[in-house]
Nucleic acid binder design. Structure first.
Lengths: 268, 268
DNA sequence: CCTTAGGTTCCATTATGTGAAACTTAGTCT
DNA sequence: AGACTAAGTTTCACATAATGGAACCTAAGG
């Protein structure tokens, strides 16, 4: 479960496959079915090249081409692959019962996240009120430097990965409380390491606060993070801090199981 | 929203990209983190070639490599892409409110599915008020010839796609009621076309029954299908048939909106 | 110390991908 | 209608990038 902070080059990359995947990202970024020309306008590839990629990806079911409107959209094969990814490569399936328990105990919103290219990828969530349906929120990405789970993970990253991650932060000041510089963030990360848990003090969204704890492997690797989130009119940071031990405990239990999950199959 | 029955060649295919995606599928099929040798054993690629693909895919974040155990698993980039896919290329986001309404009205399990390579891909689901444990789940795939949604979609496929789809069915007899031959299926599809809706008479799982209706574009294209599912000890086929009109009505409404969704953005 | 098995790197060969340009529609203006 | 334009598709000489056999590492195991 190598949820390193690391990743691949932002754009371009290894050979033909990398380029093809960039095309996929392009379509994904658009957020709606796009036409050939829209994609061409990114000037990432010459016409013929882009055309061939679109053909290939469509053939492969990674994209779907609607001949009536001439638009491309992400294909069903992705959904299928992602279902497999979600149920195998992430912490989500393992953590599931623990999230349920935490949600029941606290009555608050629970997030489970992993690091992805310096950003936070939410892999599962429990809503204060109703249960979740798969990709609706799981799969979303958010910033790392101003969220509880993000800071909790960054605090335990090895130096080189932390640097790479910091470089990727925008440090946009979402609220007056946002830590909007690398130095402010570094100081906060030190405090988090000392404490063992992170807070979000309305740094991303006004009125939203949380406590978060990292999920660490026995060797100290960052596997993910876990948070209990609330709002300022329902709770306070102090009240949330009272939950910190429970969150850390849960994180430890998840780590424990994640660890033991590795050994079962050593055979061919 | 080209949810044709069509797809890509089962294995191998266009150039380097196709092969790389086959490697992805290989890892997905395994259903657990796999080692280099496990993948090599498929004899799909020579050692060095497979190695390079794994490197590339890992670089790209499509796979993650755990250096401690030497295993490969599907990467987080897939989850991210799939989130985009789900919210853009499938019927799911459009159909959402309609599924909610149907779920509320009927109190039963609701499925929304699309065709994918002759199989049924469940893209969304609403659990019954008193949930039953069932095979299906958003992102999962299932057989077409023995499920309500599958048969509803097949019944309205154009001849060539139908043939392709039939060839891909296993016709495994899950239960005594399963239609276990192409001819039996063809007869059933004719009946479905006559009626406008399909049943699942415990053909896939004992005790599970449903009514399903196809979601058709104005031009007659199969976009997906919708079903209301129950169990034999809670309901009967007769009782479900009483819901058929409501299901068809909902399918028509979804089709309507899906259609109008195509026109909004004609600009660059 | 030798052997084996799992994994990684080399490198000459050649298949594949590349992209400018030419071509084909389908639409629009005069 | 005829001329113009924009969007999408095909072609082809060229060079990059993929290929895979073989050699090379490393640990385990004998």
């Amino acid at each position: 479960m190598g949820a390193d902070g690391g990743g691949h080059a932002a754009t371009g990359g290894d050979g033909t496959v990398g380029k093809a995947l960039d095309v996929l990202d392009l379509v994904a970024q658009a957020g709606r079915p796009v036409r050939f020309t829209d994609l061409l306008a990114h000037r990432l590839f010459p016409k013929a090249t882009l055309y061939r990629f679109l053909q290939t990806l469509t053939n492969q079911g990674m994209l779907s081409h609607d001949s009536e409107t001439g638009t491309y959209a992400l294909g069903v094969r992705l959904v299928r692959l992602a279902h497999a990814a979600w149920s195998q490569s992430s912490l989500a399936p393992i953590a599931r019962p623990f999230l349920d328990a935490l949600a029941r105990d606290t009555g608050e919103t629970i997030h489970l996240a992993q690091m992805d290219q310096g950003q936070v990828l939410y892999v599962d969530k429990r809503n204060a009120t109703k249960p979740v349906d798969m990709f609706s929120q799981a799969g979303k990405v958010g910033p790392a430097y101003c969220t509880g789970v993000g800071k909790a993970m960054m605090a335990y990253l090895p130096d080189d990965l932390l640097e790479r991650a910091i470089e990727r932060q925008s440090f946009h000041a979402f609220t007056p409380r946002t830590l909007a510089s690398p130095d402010a963030l570094r100081a906060e990360l030190a405090a988090i390491r000392a404490r063992g848990h992170a807070f979000d003090r309305e740094e991303h969204e006004a009125g939203i606060i949380c406590v978060a704890a990292p999920i660490l492997s026995r060797t100290g690797h960052v596997l993910g993070a876990l948070s209990v989130t609330s709002t300022t009119d329902r709770s306070t940071l102090g009240a949330l801090e009272a939950q910190a031990d429970k969150v850390k405990q849960t994180a430890a239990e998840i780590a424990e199981i994640a660890e033991s999950w590795r050994f079962p199959e050593q055979n061919a």
